[in-house]
Design a protein around this nucleic acid. Sequence first.
DNA 1: AAGTGGTCTAGACCACTCT
DNA 2: GAGTGGTCTAGACCACTTG
Lengths: 250, 250
Amino acid sequence: MSFRNVPPRLQLVGDDPGVSRYAVLATALRTRLLQGEWPPGSAMPPEQVLAAEHGVALGTMRRALSVLADEGLIERVHGRGTFVRQGLSGAPMLRFFRFGQGAGQVPQSRILSREQVGATRQVARLLGVAPGEPCIRIQRLRLLDGQPCLHEDMFLPLPLFEPLLHVPTADWPDLLYPFFATRCQVHVHRAVDEIGFGQFSAGQARHLALSPGHPCAVVTRTAFDLQGRPVEARTSRGDANAFHYTVTIT
Amino acid sequence: MSFRNVPPRLQLVGDDPGVSRYAVLATALRTRLLQGEWPPGSAMPPEQVLAAEHGVALGTMRRALSVLADEGLIERVHGRGTFVRQGLSGAPMLRFFRFGQGAGQVPQSRILSREQVGATRQVARLLGVAPGEPCIRIQRLRLLDGQPCLHEDMFLPLPLFEPLLHVPTADWPDLLYPFFATRCQVHVHRAVDEIGFGQFSAGQARHLALSPGHPCAVVTRTAFDLQGRPVEARTSRGDANAFHYTVTIT
DNA sequence: AAGTGGTCTAGACCACTCT
DNA sequence: GAGTGGTCTAGACCACTTG
């Protein structure tokens, strides 16, 4: 006999050479997850079960799960289980600004307009669709203590957000992402904010009680769902003098 | 006999209850490291040795080391060893700006002034010293292809940076952090950049060929060494119209 | 009490780097 | 080939949450 200490499956055998087994496992689990096998908010099977299903040791499965946790796809809770992450509840624009009072609170919203439009070139590029594709365009103000502080201009692709055409704008909540999730089954999982500076147009300035040409900070957000598809393009503008942001480099 | 399967040291026994052993180990190693037992750039003992020294299993020591690696204190290199991280080589201010050409290259430097001054209130707050404490103040321009693009105003505490008083400003390199390390044994390990908005003063504007009052992006940096002590306070200013920055939220 | 994720051990083997 | 960190296993026990 020449069997020394050989586990049932040799390391890396049967998998791509040079790729660790936990990485392969992570990919397999990610696929199952993105295909909707475990919907957002639901619990995944316990690690023991998953390890058995895939024929690996517990430690290896734990390592694979920790990869998904680091990616923000799942959340592990000691004593309760492993859960597929809900979408972002919000990615507050206000973290880019320092207005006097009302730090930390959710700003109120006043919707200025809702219309169905074709995607502009810039919006089409951000959303990954052809120019002219149908979108919902929302313009709204954000207010703190009744004071307008931000102007937002948002494009949502159709038909994905079609249900929102039928909700009276007065009924829209201040936080949109949970609203998107319940009404349109769109879970915003990641957002990219691009920051720049510019000037307010006359119309924008009027809403914020500033003069036309006043310097403004411009935040262009693209939001993505679990599958990585862009689902929202939004431009927010606020007084440049109230802008501040902190970055740590290591 | 009632010994079942008891390893030489029971879990958590002898340590603070509720604190994992690898966390305690990480703290112990961090302390040894910060006390200079293994200077920046040097190799730490192999994990086998460290595990034996502390009387823990290999896996536990590996977990502790991975904590320090996540903190950016050490760097693990497969097949070579575990190394104490050198300071930052640079944390380029240019990543906040988009000037036409010269993306990715290190901007040249032109030192405008070097003087010994007392810390202003703001600088004193950033550096954690008393107002009036002696500092070196450096003002310099950063240039791309000979075009001035950034204005910098920098304060370095004395006596820590005393050697720099004796180096002719013409001999200062474009990248300062490696210079600080070799000349003053100051290793910049972390930096915090606070971004804001303002207008150029007449003097600043002249150097950048802009008009006084032109909108500028203001980046106030505080740099820290391995021990977390602030070692540099720097304010950089550039054309607000060239500013851009991207943030990802998950 | 049952079920979950978290910690720890002991040991084998793999992959990378340098001499 | 020697020495390093990286992967994987198998199993025990701990800590947290819920019924």
